[in-house]
Design a protein around this nucleic acid. Structure first.
Lengths: 238, 238
DNA sequence: TACGGCGTGTTGTCTGACAATTGACCCGGC
DNA sequence: GCCGGGTCAATTGTCAGACAACACGCCGTA
């Protein structure tokens, strides 16, 4: 059902899971035969993995797994809950509040609706409050029955599981702020504490914004990494 | 001199600069002919651009520029200076200090040398101090004559221009901290101000760390964005 | 010992073809 | 007039085979 190059990319990803850093992969003709695809399709899949730094290809030498492990960073769009689960951290949702209200002009333009649902809650890791999250989502994007029943802390996971609307990416702005007012209260920290703040818009494949979220994180528990790669002639200003 | 697919990717990037969102690109055979490469090479270059969300390919339809513009974010490894130049901001280097010293055990292990050069300086944008940067680089990575003559604020730009060693990516940890001590002094802000901090290791293509840098940014002038994409079958856990 | 050519294996690129998919067009039936 | 289905052209996806460029070890030679 799925495209050959998707199956191939997935098969390669699994192969990499079982590989040691520094290990050399079979040659392209051999791998293509093993996976039952042509070399062209194999290379298409490899390009994607190379772009994410999972493999290194060197002409005349071969393809190998990079010696340094690139931990999963912010590039992949996953929820706090999923992030935590991957590192074996226990998280739960604290007090939550679901508010229906009219959208302000900015939200109306961005989300394309005049009524929004605002979902705010704190996140606890190992019993300690670590984050305060606020999602603003257009009314009707999620049936309220679903929201009431299946929401366990992550709007993102809810949307991803439903698959409707189909999400593509989010764009976040990162900043540092002081804790104050409601946010300080919810996080149970004194006003004036330092917080890391993410303000993100969640886009569908059509370029539509479905959710606008703000996250305030206490330092310590979560480490946010970002991998920055040198362009390979991809930027016009070179 | 450079590889065909690099030239192709660069040419495509320039083409995209001149394109409107929603615009449909010429078909692959036509584009390949225009750029003077085979369709295989063209597709290799397109894969990279598709992976970064710059183009969308749909079988039976064509290739087009996505309706939403993804501004350049943190994914690309560029210096503050380059970032500023792209948005038309005037930046300059303030007081700088170059210190030769023995490396502490952690640095020795990471950088693989026992002597390091520590370069610290403040960055000014439009006359205002906006950042304080500290690079710790292994002695011998850059000839000192070059460092003295060609350093104008960015170690990264210096390394990229020299092309030796060949850089591949950096991994940064993002956090929020209070300004204090030397850092507050240099930035000319009261102790206790809130700063955004990036702590990065700079890797070569061989996985070697050549530079460890810390950056402290005052809020306001620079906006740091990161685009997070949903996985497309590339993670083994699916 | 030092050095330079040579052979082998790998990724990079080219060529040509066919498959799968999409969207538009046309035409007939109601 | 409107709707439905079939056909067709255009486009990306995939395939197969070949050659080019490159890196590295091997071996013969000075």
């Amino acid at each position: 059902m799925s495209k050959p190059y998707q199956r191939t990319a997935h098969a390669l990803a699994e192969l990499l899971e079982r590989s040691e850093p520094g290990e050399v992969l079979p040659s392209e003709p051999r791998l293509a035969e093993q996976l039952g695809v042509s070399r062209a399709t194999l290379r298409e899949a490899m390009s994607a993995l190379e772009d994410r730094g999972r493999i290194v290809r060197r002409q005349g030498v071969g393809t190998y797994v990079p010696p340094t492990i690139i931990e999963a960073g912010l590039e992949e769009l996953i929820s706090i809950e999923t992030m935590a689960a991957r590192v074996g951290l226990e998280v739960e949702m604290g007090d939550s509040e679901i508010l229906h209200r009219n959208s302000d002009p900015e939200e109306a333009q961005l989300l394309g609706v005049d009524q929004v649902i605002e979902i705010s809650r704190v996140i606890l890791a190992e019993g300690e409050t670590v984050a305060y999250l606020v999602d603003t989502i257009g009314k009707g994007m999620i049936p309220e029955a679903v929201l009431a029943k299946e929401f366990h802390g992550s709007v993102l996971d809810l949307l991803l599981e439903r698959g409707e609307p189909a999400l593509e990416y989010s764009k976040s702005e990162i900043s540092a702020v002081f804790a104050e007012g409601r946010i300080a209260d919810r996080l149970e920290v004194p006003a004036g504490s330092v917080l890391l703040r993410f303000e993100a818009s969640l886009f569908t494949k059509d370029g539509q914004v479905v959710d606008r979220s703000q996250g305030y994180f206490l330092p310590g528990t979560f480490k946010f990494h970002v991998v920055r790669r040198v362009g390979r002639g991809l930027s016009a200003t070179a």
